[in-house]
Design a protein around this nucleic acid. Sequence first.
DNA 1: CCTTCAGGTTAACGACCGCTAACCTCCTTG
DNA 2: CAAGGAGGTTAGCGGTCGTTAACCTGAAGG
Lengths: 198, 198
Amino acid sequence: MTTRTDAPTRREQILKEAARLFAERGFHGVGVDEIGAAVGISGPGLYRHFAGKDAMLAELLVGISGQLLTGAKRRLAESDGGAPEALLDSLIEGHIDFALDDRPLITLHDRELDRLRDSDRKLVRQLQRQYVELWVSVLREVYPGLAEPAARSAVHSVFGLLNSTPHLGRPGSLPGRGVTAELLHRMARGAFAAAGAE
Amino acid sequence: MTTRTDAPTRREQILKEAARLFAERGFHGVGVDEIGAAVGISGPGLYRHFAGKDAMLAELLVGISGQLLTGAKRRLAESDGGAPEALLDSLIEGHIDFALDDRPLITLHDRELDRLRDSDRKLVRQLQRQYVELWVSVLREVYPGLAEPAARSAVHSVFGLLNSTPHLGRPGSLPGRGVTAELLHRMARGAFAAAGAE
DNA sequence: CCTTCAGGTTAACGACCGCTAACCTCCTTG
DNA sequence: CAAGGAGGTTAGCGGTCGTTAACCTGAAGG
């Protein structure tokens, strides 16, 4: 784990607040003045750090997809030769950590993709596709009888399940992070098992 | 079943197209001129049918929540005294039908709620809450060991799973509606079973 | 046949929003 | 200590958007 101790840069502050606001009210529902105000500067000051509002969204979405894919690839490498069940558990765990710790990003990730410029959207889609395909191949190792289209549908559906964290109420009202993570993990495994039982 | 044979009214046309456009590009991303063009009239002509753009969204969201709740209540009444497992299956089936047949509405339902006026939002939230609580009580009959907070989380997560249909590719690329519905159903049951196994 | 009204039209207004221009103020660095 | 760039500021432009106003038309009804 690479824990950050130094203070976040202004760019990072902006991205974090923009993510929160975009998730709350939608990309078009948030003005640049609001984003600026959220970090203590006003409106046009943002243009010292980003080319425009679109660039912020692009950086957020590319970052999310890349982070998910990178983490999954690392887990794949670490489990080299191990049991596919353990790798699947590791993937689930990683996705849950992300969904619980970066809820605004998870929300954006499947909601504002269409607001991107063509080239950015293609990049994000490609990263997402690689991530999905990695899950699909691991899932089919665990459940060899599962056909590929069904496996892909199952993976998307489990993403829907895991990404439901924003609907689970405020972080405070949850039964506790560990308990929630464990529940989500069990449900994901249960859903996969049911999909794999033909 | 109440099958409609008469032609849809202009209001209904507008609502349908507005739902599709809102789901595709977000509430703020669609202009009234676009909605008008989608039904063959232009821009301000919409104001003969709706008080404003907000009113269209409100009617859509209230309609969705109400329809889901009404259907669930009907299923509850029909199964009176029957096995809770069968009722749970019936609820899942109804939700899947909705998610597969009205994908734009499912998308809107958990995405644009915050764009509503306070009173409308409260109404929608109340309908949604009743719907969730109905599921929770049925779920806890099937799995009596499941505590209420966990049951509620499980229900929200399974909604996430079932509502993932918009991510499953175009209706044509699916393996077939029946097959997909059955897969989703099995996964939902599997996820609940895993949640219920303490 | 005249009235009425539902359901359109186009023009235009006012507000808002993304972005640029022009300017200011430190902090750094040779 | 002068120079310069990083990172702010406010003013304002140009475009878009929701909405209203004013007008038109064709069908229904007494």
